[in-house]
Amino acid sequence: IVREVLPLGSVVELDPLYFKPSEKTDSPTLLVITGRFIAPKGYMTYFPYKGVVYPVGEVKANAHVHFTAPLIKKVIQRGYKDESELAFELMMKRELMLNRGMTSLEFSPKAMTQLQTELTKD
């Protein structure tokens, strides 16, 4: 609950192994954060972030990448943060974590495995 949440518009570099775990690659993958606190239907977990690939953006409808904080190798540029951003962050943490008892997907190996299985079915 005390973990910092990056604001919308932040540009982050993700660990390239997230995209191709079987390949050794050093090429950075940059994403622009376009959403936070995304809860897949039917789960008691949420993704802290979703984003689009920089500089391409959203080339196909709903082509977002969902990710968790440990996948962020480096913050390239922080987005804008003011009092309303801080209030939103607090409200979402209170709703998801305290009221609904949800955790970030990274803290639930069972939910992560279940979600990966569902995604590979398609």
Rank of each mutant, 00 (worst) to 15 (best):
R36M: 00
F37N: 02
I38F: 10
P40D: 13
P40G: 13
P40S: 14
P40Q: 12
P40H: 12
P40K: 12
G42V: 05
Y43M: 15
Y43N: 05
Y43E: 13
T45A: 12
F47K: 06
P48C: 12
K50D: 11
K50P: 08
G51L: 00
V52D: 05
V53L: 08
Y54W: 14
G57T: 00
V59A: 14
K60R: 13
A61K: 14
A61N: 07
N62R: 09
A63D: 15
H64K: 07
H64F: 15
H64C: 08
V65P: 07
H66I: 01
H66R: 10
H66E: 05
T68D: 07
T68W: 01
A69Q: 15
A69N: 14
L71F: 05
I72K: 04
I72L: 06
I72G: 04
K74W: 04
I76W: 05
I76Y: 07
Q77K: 13
R78F: 02
R78S: 04
Y80M: 12
K81N: 08
K81W: 03
D82S: 07
D82N: 15
D82T: 06
D82M: 05
E83Q: 07
S84N: 09
S84R: 08
S84D: 07
E85A: 12
E85P: 00
L86A: 08
A87Y: 05
A87H: 06
A87E: 12
F88E: 06
F88V: 01
M91S: 12
K93Q: 13
R94S: 03
E95Q: 14
E95L: 14
E95K: 14
L96T: 11
L96C: 10
L96W: 10
L96E: 06
L96N: 11
L96V: 11
M97F: 02
M97G: 02
M97Q: 14
L98Y: 13
R100K: 14
